[in-house]
């Protein structure tokens, strides 16, 4: 009686949700949200015919992460500059070893922070996606980037409209 895998098509790339890695799949009559925790998966279904509205709200999470990454990068680059300044002057011995460790550590932290900063900036603004259903509002665990969310909305809108064709004839307010 269970349906074989293959009835679902991927809607979004896997993204880090609030509790695990989440991804949206498009089913024959519903939207499936899969949150993976490594050993297990959790499923939530939203039927096309029941979705009243989809709302995407832009958030400031990207800015916050960029500020944190920027602060780390600035501090570590400062440390790197100071270490390089003193290493040029230093003679030899344990001081040189300590400066070497400091340069390596500050360089590593700066590199990682700058990569995080760059990737976070390139991926675009963050968002939250919400579905309005007859029984209330559900927040989706994914997608969390505006660009992906808009693309997802463009993909699911025709499917929702198709499932609600019998309601189109109803008079608008």
């Amino acid at each position: 009686m269970s349906k074989a895998p293959g009835i679902y098509t991927k809607l979004t790339a896997i993204g880090l949700g609030s509790l695990g890695f989440a991804r949206l799949w498009s089913g024959p009559d519903h939207l499936l949200e899969v949150t993976a925790y490594g050993f297990s998966e959790r499923y939530r279904r939203f039927y096309w015919r029941e979705i009243e509205a989809v709302l995407v709200r832009r958030t400031a999470v990207r800015l916050i992460w960029n500020l944190i990454g920027g602060a780390f990068a600035a501090i570590s680059l400062g440390g790197l500059a100071v270490s390089l300044h003193y290493s040029a002057r230093s003679t030899s011995g344990p001081e040189e070893v300590l400066l070497g460790i400091s340069i390596g550590l500050c360089g590593l932290i700066a590199a990682v922070s700058l990569i995080v900063l760059l990737v976070n900036t390139l991926l675009g603004p963050r968002c939250v996606c919400l579905l309005r259903l007859p029984v209330g509002v559900e927040r989706l665990a994914a997608p969390t980037r505006m660009r992906v969310a808009i693309r997802m909305l463009e993909k699911i809108a025709p499917r929702i409209e198709l499932a609600q064709t019998e309601l189109v004839a109803a008079p608008l307010p």
Partner: peptide
Amino acid sequence: SQLTGRVFPAFWSPA
């Protein structure tokens, strides 16, 4: 807040 979204027929005429 910047909001992007779509409303669908079920929004106007819930079954």
